[in-house]
């Protein structure tokens, strides 16, 4: 419109209001609230050791949240991750039990299977752009779990080497090993998203894939890397999950994909892509994790947890939209 130039804002000045009105701070508040809640209902909770070790119960799923942030940032989705966890864990079990490979080799195979599953998704999504990623991963979700069923039927496997238990049950000092690994992974993924070329390009694709193409960004390559990475991290999750369960079954990690997506979206990443931050998703992991743990402490059934998480997800995404009804007209004006 005519007097547009006046609308241009100058160099971003630091504003406390803007800084504290970010989604991530709301999440921090929610996180604190959950902790106060936990502490109020159970005197045992406030014990630092308890808090730390409670993370062992939910962090395996969180490994998938990290790459899922990238997938959703692209404006796409991967619902095959739960099945990838099952398949890579089952293959690992079979290699260890039946072929008697050394444990370290079985672990590597698990990671490789995960990465391969992701690579396959990525190749189909990149090669056949006409098919929505949701559909591709819907079919591979059925397929991967199906392959796991073919391999292991309704049995369970994985009588793993003793040291393998350390992954999910071990401590470094007083800190659970899994927490350390997750922290390292979270930092790496966060830096990758926010501080590198690669991350910037992911944001670009999520905001406007066409303009990214015309800017010379190699979209196919980036997608391939991200889906492969997602598969690989599903393999990592498979390691920790089978270590925690002490066995592998074809029906393990059902629903992991939707949990991961829920945490990413709760963390403020826009499902349409291009907006959000890694830290939000990481805080969301701990909010949901501690919430589950706290409700578990007072013997609240896991069913209530389901309800709470479901409502939390729907309401949190609805929240910013409730007051927005007046803001729409401006948007149409821009067009």
């Amino acid at each position: 419109m005519p007097k547009r130039k006046e609308l241009i804002t100058g160099r971003k000045s630091f504003s406390f209001k803007r800084f504290f009105l970010q989604w991530e701070w709301l999440l921090v508040l929610a996180f604190i609230a959950v902790n106060i809640f936990d502490a109020a209902i159970s005197p045992y909770f406030l014990d630092m050791n308890n808090i730390l070790s409670s993370t062992m119960n939910f962090l395996d799923n969180a490994f998938i949240v990290l790459p899922m942030v990238f997938v959703i940032m692209l404006g796409e989705i991967d619902i095959s991750v739960g099945s990838t966890v099952a398949l890579s864990a089952v293959v690992m079990g079979v290699f260890y039990d039946k072929f008697h490979t050394p444990m370290w080799l079985a672990v590597l195979i698990c990671l490789a299977v995960g990465a391969l599953c992701g690579l396959f998704n990525g190749m189909i999504i990149v090669k056949f752009k006409e098919i929505a990623p949701m559909i591709v991963t819907l079919s591979t979700m059925t397929m991967y779990r199906g392959i796991a069923q073919i391999i292991i039927r309704d049995q369970s496997g994985g009588n793993f080497a003793p040291w393998f238990k350390f992954l999910s049950w071990g401590y470094l000092g007083s800190i659970p090993f899994i927490l350390v690994v997750f922290a390292v992974a979270a930092v790496i993924f966060g830096l990758l998203l926010h501080k590198t070329n690669f991350g910037r390009r992911v944001y670009a694709i999520g905001n406007n894939e066409i303009a990214s193409l015309y800017s010379g960004i190699q979209i196919g390559r980036i997608k391939l890397i991200i889906y492969t990475l997602t598969g690989f991290m599903s393999g990592v999750a498979a390691l920790f999950l089978s270590s925690r369960m002490g066995s592998t079954r074809s029906d393990m990690a059902t629903g992991y994909e939707l949990n991961a997506i829920a945490m990413v979206v709760l963390g403020g990443v826009n499902i349409m892509g291009g907006r959000g931050r890694m830290i939000g998703a990481i805080i969301a992991v701990f909010i949901i994790g501690f919430l589950k743990y706290g409700l578990g402490l007072i013997n609240m059934s896991s069913q209530v947890v389901l309800i709470v998480i479901g409502l939390l997800l729907a309401v949190s995404v609805a929240l910013p939209n409730i007051k927005k009804s007046g803001g729409k007209q401006r948007k149409t004006e821009e067009a």
Binding site: R200, A204, N208, I210, A211, Y214, I217
Partner: peptide
């Protein structure tokens, strides 16, 4: 607006993205 720019990005980010 569709092929050339990422409209909600700053001038700086648009210039450097390629």
């Amino acid at each position: 607006q569709v092929q050339g720019l990422i409209m909600n990005w700053s001038i700086q980010k648009n210039i450097t993205v390629s």
